[in-house]
Every structure is written in structure tokens, then in C-alpha cells.
Amino acid sequence: MTEAQNPALEEADSHQLVSHEQHLAAVEAVLMVTEEPVTAKQLAAAVDVSEHRMVALLDQLRAEADGAAGGRQRGYELREVAGGWRYYSRARYAEQVSAFVLGDQTARLSAAALETLAVIAYRQPVARSAVAAIRGVNVDGVVRTLVQRGLLDTAGHDPVTGATLYVTTAQLLERLGLDSLADLPQLSPHLPGVEDLQEHEHPGM
């Protein structure tokens, strides 16, 4: 039996191929949920491969998204930015993306978005972690959507944790028909106080 016909070698090659495809899929899955660029070292640790191999996987994913080897170019691209990697929608489709985010399809705010806006309106500037602690659920996606729609904006970073702080915008006041935040109903006493938020943002302090 020749080496090429050896079933054991063929099975080993098959396992290597499956492992490679699984690694590619795992990296894609992680990148899909990141809000900020992730370094190759962080991705390597998450997928349990060497950093050198991770760079090769990222290069392949970037090439595939760009339509290399005759494949279809995707509406998103994998970019290396600020020392990290992240998926971004392609600039050529900015008009369509903006139309979806800001248009009629998302004109009505969900209950989750309204609750998140309420917490931030009364406790701003505030980090996502504090909002999530108050609501009891992850709010990353909701906050990202509200920022894209111009209802929230960033206002620096927490001096201790470095977490991004969020505030409401003038556009929100306009949509609510208010002149200032002082015109908001007196719901603040029903939300956790500043001390409680600090415990969520700076545990152990």
C-alpha cells in the first residue's frame, strides 16, 4: 500500500482540515460579537492556537471577505485597526446601512431600548456595565443601536476602569419634546443611587 493510499494518513489529513475550518469559524464567531478591535493575541487565547497561526487565520478570513480566489466579495470586511481586528461594513454600503439604522425599519424603539434610555437619562454619564447591572441584562447591542441612531453619545471614560461613559443627546430631548433634562419626570428615586452604580462599576472598592 502506497503512502497516498494509507487510510490512516488520509484520516489525519481530514482531521487537520476540519480543525482548520473549525478554527476559522471560531474566530469569525468571536469577531462577530466584538465592539472594539481585538488583538491577535487575544483571539489566539480564545481559540487556543498560537499567535502566529492566528495571524494566518485572520489573513485568510480577510482574503475571503474580500472575494479572493474568485469568491464573492462580502458586504463587510475584516480590518486591522489600532493593533486589533474587527469586522466592519464596507464603506460603499454606508448609505444602505444608514438608511436601515435610521430609517423606518427601526423607527420605533423597543422596550429594551426605552428602558436603557431611561436609565442613562437619569444616571448619566454612566458606563454600560452599570446600566446592565440595573436592567439585569446585557445592553451592549442596545447601546450601540442607540448611539447609531443619535440618541446616545459618548462622554469620555471612567477614570478608574477606563470604561466608556454614555450620555443622552439633544436629539433625544427633541424627540421627547423637552427643553432640558430637568424637564424629565421625577423617576430618579426609583433607580439605584450613585453609590450603587459605583459598586457595579468598581467592584471591591
Rank of each mutant, 00 (worst) to 15 (best):
A26M: 07
V27R: 06
E28G: 04
E28C: 12
A29K: 14
V30W: 12
M32K: 08
E36I: 09
T39E: 03
L43Y: 04
A44Q: 00
A45N: 06
A45S: 14
D48K: 00
D48Q: 12
S50Q: 07
H52Q: 11
M54V: 03
M54I: 00
M54L: 07
A56Q: 15
A56F: 05
L57G: 04
L58V: 00
Q60A: 11
L61G: 09
E64D: 13
A65M: 05
G67E: 09
A68Q: 04
A69E: 15
R72L: 07
R72D: 11
Q73E: 15
G75T: 02
Y76G: 09
Y76K: 10
L78T: 08
E80Q: 06
E80F: 00
V81R: 13
A82L: 06
G83A: 01
W85C: 01
R86D: 01
Y87C: 04
Y87S: 04
S89G: 11
S89M: 08
R90F: 01
A91E: 15
E95L: 06
Q96H: 14
A99N: 09
A99F: 02
F100C: 06
V101Q: 13
D104I: 04
T106I: 04
A107F: 07
A107V: 02
R108T: 08
L109D: 03
A111H: 07
A113T: 08
L114Q: 14
L114T: 14
L114N: 14
E115W: 08
A118K: 09
V119S: 05
I120D: 00
I120W: 03
I120R: 06
A121K: 02
R123C: 08
R123K: 11
Q124V: 02
P125H: 04
V126P: 02
S129L: 09
A130C: 05
A132P: 03
A132I: 09
A133L: 05
A133G: 07
A133E: 10
I134W: 11
I134Q: 15
R135N: 12
G136C: 02
V137Y: 11
N138V: 11
N138E: 14
V139A: 05
D140Q: 13
D140Y: 13
G141S: 15
V142R: 10
V142Q: 12
V143G: 05
V143R: 07
R144L: 11
R144G: 02
